[in-house]
Design a protein around this nucleic acid. Structure first.
Length: 421
RNA sequence: GUGGGUAUAGCUCAGUUGGUUAGAGCGCCAGGUUGUGGCCCUGGAGGCCGUGGGUUCGAUUCCCACUACUCACCCCA
């Protein structure tokens, strides 16, 4: 063939798209119950949005963005995450002027990162995400987490682990950074090359390093949680209290840092151990400084992103069955040109009546048409040949019972409507 | 960006210690009744054996390079 789908991209084929639609339906439903409305933002944005929003020391910005110049020499970037575009839209369209908080979700939103593909990691993937602006109360942190967990629950997914942490605000982080740096500096010789660089750019990242030597050192490093200021500490306690009230199990994981610069206070990940090394199905947190950073009035915010592909991997690995919608209720089988015309008219009438109807488009024999009707799962077959046409009748065959009855053509559509109802 | 594995039909995979026309199962199409699906039987279509080079009388098989896929690191959803 001429070319293949680009590296790290995947087609969602007709044979599996119903799974996406099913999952999306549950997401829409859960969001509606929690009071979130859908927002759709462009697939590409001005590059500077992500430089400021995601943070220019992050791996995402430094080496993973699909950035190009358009014909007017504007620097454009395919979105590498969902939040920045929503924040831009929040500011640009003046949503702060409407009733607060502002609660929004996006569905199956394509996200692009130039990565090396592996299990659960693609160059184009899709995220379901929600964002909420305007509230600094810990109750919204708990609600956001609950939206994600409710989606998992309603999909029948069990065994995921919720990890939470607080990385504090700007104020408490400076104190913590000092303590962390002092500790790391003492143990510098045991750190990997990358981590020594991270000490200069973003010391928090060292906590995330998976190198054995580094993680040993990190295990005894000062913990952010112990350095939270009064307000942040109170906020974190408020979150824990609400999770407990909602009977949501969680684990406090002081090593969760997240790779995007905008997070403050609450961060969380929901992790699966069933889908390979890339087990984070959902990740998110609070970003109280982001709206202001992008030129809006100071406004707190919080949200999460959930990977659709990873979610479907979890569903598959757990063996969760998603109901596959039937392709066809009635197949209209005809013999000869005259009957084919009549049959085509009946097929259209059935469709107009809301029935999934099919007829022959291959010039096939009756046997082949029956075979095809069986393959596409038709519950009934209407048979019209010369004999039936002469009598203005059709035979209706029930494919599961293998029973046939003759019906007058002018009563056919009504009868089938009744049978379906 | 770094490392491991793999590459034969639409799919899952045999195979050739280097030798003529490369196989199976499933799937697809047709026939077995000029009017009846699932089961069964028969037949058919469909492969530059990933690409390029090397060794050889001869390479799908051996060697090298490249590419793609895949898994892991890194990072993240």
């Amino acid at each position: 063939m001429l070319t293949k789908a680009p590296k790290g991209t995947k087609d969602i084929l007709p044979a599996e798209s119903y799974k996406w639609q099913y999952v999306e339906g549950i997401m829409r439903d859960v969001c509606a119950r929690f009071g979130y409305r859908e927002i759709r933002t462009p697939v590409f944005e001005h590059t500077e949005l992500f430089l400021r929003g995601v943070g220019d020391t992050t791996d995402i910005v430094q080496k993973e963005m699909y950035t190009f110049e358009d014909k007017a020499k504007r620097s454009i970037t395919l979105k590498p995450e969902g939040t920045a575009g929503v924040v831009r839209s929040f500011i640009e369209s003046g949503m702060a002027g409407a009733a607060q908080p502002t609660k929004m979700y996006y569905l199956a939103c394509p996200v692009f990162r130039y990565e090396k593909p592996q299990a659960g990691r693609l160059r184009e993937h899709h995220q379901f995400g929600i964002e909420c602006f305007g509230s600094q109360e810990p109750s919204i942190d708990a609600e956001i987490i609950s939206v994600a967990l409710t989606v998992f629950k309603e999909l029948g997914i069990k065994g995921l682990e919720l990890n939470i942490n607080s990385i504090g605000c700007k104020e408490c982080r400076t104190g913590y950074n000092k303590a962390l740096l002092a500790y790391l500096d003492k143990n510098k010789s045991g750190l990997c090359k990358d981590c020594r660089q991270r000490m200069k750019t973003n010391p928090l990242r060292v906590l995330d390093c998976k190198q054995d030597s580094c993680s040993k050192i990190v295990a005894d490093a000062p913990k952010m949680i112990d350095y939270l200021c009064g307000e942040c500490s109170e906020h974190f306690e408020g979150l824990k209290g609400r999770l407990a009230a909602a009977e949501i199990d969680y684990k406090i994981n002081p090593l969760i840092v997240r790779g995007l610069d905008y997070y403050t206070k609450t961060v969380f990940e929901i992790i699966s151990t069933d889908i390979g090394a890339q087990g984070t199905v959902c990740g998110g947190g609070r970003y109280d400084g982001l709206v202001e950073e992008l030129g809006g009035k100071p406004t707190p915010g919080i949200g999460f992103g959930m990977g659709m592909e990873r979610l479907l991997l979890v569903i598959e690995s757990l063996g969760i069955e998603i109901p596959e919608p039937s392709l066809c209720d009635v197949y209209v089988c005809t013999l000869g040109e005259k009957a084919a015309k009549t049959g085509f008219g009946i097929t259209e009438e059935l469709r107009a009546a809301g029935i999934k109807a099919e007829c022959d488009h291959m010039g096939r024999s009756m046997k082949a048409q029956m075979k095809y009707a069986g393959k596409i799962g038709a519950a009934k077959v209407v048979i019209i040949g010369e004999d039936e046409l002469d009598k203005n009748e059709a035979v209706v065959r029930d494919m599961t019972q293998s029973e046939e009855t003759s019906v007058a053509l002018d009563r056919l559509v009504d009868l089938i409507k009744k049978l379906k109802a």
